[in-house]
C-alpha cells in the first residue's frame, strides 16, 4: 500500500447514493481505496456492485454523496466544474467499453481532441496525435475514420486519445468488453506496456478473470462495499470469479 501523501488516488469513506422516487438508494458504502503511482489495479464485482459508479467518481464524471476523494494531491470535492474538466483533461486518460470515438472525425482528429481544450496549436496537436497513433500501432492511417477500422483498432485509437495529454492515470471501464479474446489480450498487453515502461497508473474495471489477471492488485466490490483489496496472488479464488 502506498503512502497517503504521494498517492495518485486517495479515497476515504466514500458514499454514493442515487435519489429515486422511493428515496435514496445507496450504491457505494464507506469505500476507502488508495492507489500509488505506477500501480496496475483491477476492479471486479458483479453487476450492480457499484463498480461503474466508482469508476465514474474516480474519473470526476460524477460526484460522491459523502466522503473525500483526493486526486493527484487535489481534493476533488472542493473543485468547481471547470477545474474538474481541467483534471479530466490533464491528469486522467479515459478508455471506455464502447470506445466513444467521434464518428465524423478522422483518427488523428479524434486523438488530438483533448489538446484542443488545452489550447495547443494545430500543428503541434496533429504531430502529437500521430505520435500517439504510432505508439498504439496505428500510425499508418491517421486520416481514416473510426467506421473504417476494427473494434480492436478503435480501442487502440481511444487509448492513444487517452495518452495524448500524458496523463498520470488511465481509467479503463471494461475496455475489452466489446472485443474478442485475442484482441482483448493485445489491448491488455498495451496497458501493461504503458504501465511498466511509462510508469502510468492504470485502474481498470472488468468482469473477466483473465483480464484482471494482467493487473497487480485486485479490488473486489460487492453491494457497494470493498470485500477484498490486495495483491492479485493472494486473492481467494472466489474473488477472481467471472461475474455476469
Amino acid at each position: 500500500m502506498a503512502r497517503a501523501a504521494d498517492a495518485v488516488i486517495r479515497i476515504e469513506h466514500l458514499d454514493k447514493e442515487y435519489a429515486t422516487e422511493a428515496g435514496a438508494v445507496p450504491v457505494l458504502k464507506d469505500v476507502s481505496v488508495t492507489v500509488a503511482p505506477g500501480e496496475f489495479v483491477a476492479i471486479m464485482g458483479p453487476s450492480g456492485s457499484g463498480k461503474s459508479t466508482f469508476m465514474n467518481i474516480l474519473g470526476c464524471l460524477d460526484v460522491a454523496t459523502r466522503g473525500r476523494y483526493v486526486l493527484n494531491g487535489r481534493d476533488v470535492g472542493t473543485l468547481d466544474k471547470d477545474e474538474l474538466a481541467h483534471l479530466r483533461n490533464q491528469v486522467i486518460g479515459f478508455v471506455f467499453q464502447g470506445f466513444n470515438l467521434l464518428p465524423r472525425a478522422s483518427l488523428e482528429d479524434n486523438v488530438a481532441l483533448p489538446l484542443i481544450y488545452r489550447g495547443t496549436p494545430r500543428s503541434e496537436r496533429l504531430a502529437r496525435a500521430r505520435e500517439m497513433l504510432a505508439k498504439v500501432g496505428l500510425g499508418a492511417y491517421p486520416r481514416s475514420h473510426p467506421n473504417q477500422i476494427s473494434g480492436g483498432q478503435q480501442q487502440r485509437v481511444a487509448i492513444a486519445r487517452a495518452l495524448v495529454n500524458q496523463p498520470k492515470l488511465i481509467l479503463a471501464d471494461e475496455p475489452t468488453g466489446n472485443l474478442d479474446t485475442a484482441t482483448s489480450m493485445e489491448i491488455m498487453a498495451l496497458f501493461t506496456e504503458l504501465n511498466e515502461r511509462d510508469g502510468i497508473t492504470v485502474v481498470l474495471v472488468t468482469h473477466e478473470p483473465d483480464i484482471a489477471a494482467v493487473a497487480h492488485r485486485l479490488v473486489r466490490l460487492t453491494d457497494g462495499k470493498v470485500i477484498y483489496d490486495g495483491p492479485l496472488e493472494r486473492a481467494a479464488p472466489g474473488h477472481m470469479e467471472k461475474t455476469p
Binding site: 474538466a85 479530466r88 490533464q90 483533448p114 481544450y117
Partner: peptide, 9 residues
C-alpha cells in the same frame, strides 16, 4: 465524450 476528455461547459 468531449466533457469526459476535458471540455469545459
Amino acid at each position: 465524450i468531449r466533457m469526459a476528455i476535458g471540455a469545459r461547459g
